[in-house]
Design a protein around this nucleic acid. Sequence first.
DNA 1: CCCAATTAAGTTGTGCACAATCTAAACGGG
DNA 2: CCCGTTTAGATTGTGCACAACTTAATTGGG
Lengths: 143, 143
Amino acid sequence: MRDFTLELDDQLCFALYAASRAVTARYRPLLDDLGLTYPQYLVMLVLWERGSVPVKDLAAALQLDYGTLSPLLKRLESAGLIRRERRPDDERSVRIVLTGHGDELRERAKDVPPAIGDAMNLGQEDTARLRALLRTLADNVSR
Amino acid sequence: MRDFTLELDDQLCFALYAASRAVTARYRPLLDDLGLTYPQYLVMLVLWERGSVPVKDLAAALQLDYGTLSPLLKRLESAGLIRRERRPDDERSVRIVLTGHGDELRERAKDVPPAIGDAMNLGQEDTARLRALLRTLADNVSR
DNA sequence: CCCAATTAAGTTGTGCACAATCTAAACGGG
DNA sequence: CCCGTTTAGATTGTGCACAACTTAATTGGG
């Protein structure tokens, strides 16, 4: 029989919570140079990859709701990185489009992943293993 | 040479961020029954383990600063779960002490870790592996 | 064809996270 | 013993997360 305690250090959840914040903290100075917060960076990753994306798909990709995304996108818009386009054939839907400025930022962001990979210092093997475990966990927990 | 891209799904950081939020979301209904948020639950874990703790040590254990802890503790206090005691020999230091009500909550929280462990569904082996990887990661990244 | 139900998005309110700033108590070297 | 420095803690302001609610456009069944 497995033995579950209330001790902080036993909890996988705390290791997860602490690691997530530690990684975000490591990103912060790099992203400050780009004028982005961490969640804003994630949005930009999706846009750099797909060019333009409906808000709905952005929400699905990042697992965020409109309550988080709407104000975040408003800030990216007033920073001049994105534009909102309401679809003519469905006035409910809003498509997020990169501006020229937003696209240019991609070049400057190229250095971020290697710098973080270096700081994480896990090696290719453990990185893949960890990513797989995290996906399994997220999957299990959200069904 | 390792190949770092800007694709969202490549990023370990996103898997980490998503998994952390998914796990917290799974805790939510259980903690709602106890009248706690997830960070409040973490504080209570430390208090249930150590009885009473100076705010400074709480901050160190959870890696949180006073800006996060002060208002959180104020809410736990007005919920009647904790008490603040200013140390007579050092008026700067505040010690957090469980109230009777706070101590009683421990009994009701006993069911939480097994329920979460069950939902995570990782097995003892992978759980230990994941926890170890997360600690190494947090360690590497915050040096 | 119409209207009830659904869908996309936004808004409001609460509670973290964290940087920056502030206060007051304690310490310590000259 | 005094004053500059350090330390414990709180406060303020910004930006997520997320629940609950609102709005407006679209859809689909009778």
